[in-house]
């Protein structure tokens, strides 16, 4: 790709990554969540594939596969966390520990990052999964059938 595209990519890259991370992190407070933020970051992968070609990223293929499995495992293990009561029980909500604060006051409020129990953790697990999953789909499709893939 041309110099312009490469330069613009370099400028956009950190912004998009930060925005994706923000969307994932604030999933329980603002519109968005693991899937949406993951898709934003995965679009960065797509951009890189378009700009630099899939061959330069083929080292990431194995990493993506591992991260995908790790994300899915983390998600299902978080669901197993509640097995003392029921599967998928949100045991961390209201427990007072990490992410265990109750909502400051019911009704409209500014929001507190430290709330919602397992939800933020699940958002991260799903986000990781979506980044790795979509990234590896894009990468695999771009690499298929090429000698250098």
């Amino acid at each position: 790709m041309s110099v312009v595209v490469r330069t613009v990519t370099r400028v956009i890259l950190p912004v998009a990554l930060a925005f994706g991370a923000y969307v994932i992190m604030h999933g329980h407070l603002t519109p968005g969540g693991g899937f949406q933020g993951g898709a934003v970051i995965a679009s960065v992968v797509a951009l890189l594939v378009v700009v630099y070609g899939g061959a330069r990223l083929k080292g990431a293929k194995g990493w993506f596969a591992v991260l995908e499995d790790v994300g899915a495992l983390a998600f299902v293990l978080l669901a197993f966390l509640g097995i003392g009561a029921t599967f998928f029980r949100n045991v961390l909500a209201g427990s007072g520990g990490l992410f265990g604060n109750p909502v400051p006051q019911p009704g409209p409020n500014p929001g507190d990052l430290n709330t919602a129990g397992t939800l933020p953790l699940m958002n991260w697990a799903v986000g990781l999964k979506v980044i790795a999953g979509l990234g590896s789909v894009v990468l695999l499709l771009s690499l298929f059938g090429r000698e250098d893939g």
Partner: peptide, 17 residues
Amino acid sequence: AQAEVAANNVVTSIVFD
């Protein structure tokens, strides 16, 4: 949702809880 899941985003509390 706010009282049970302690999340401000009702959609997220449905999706994950």
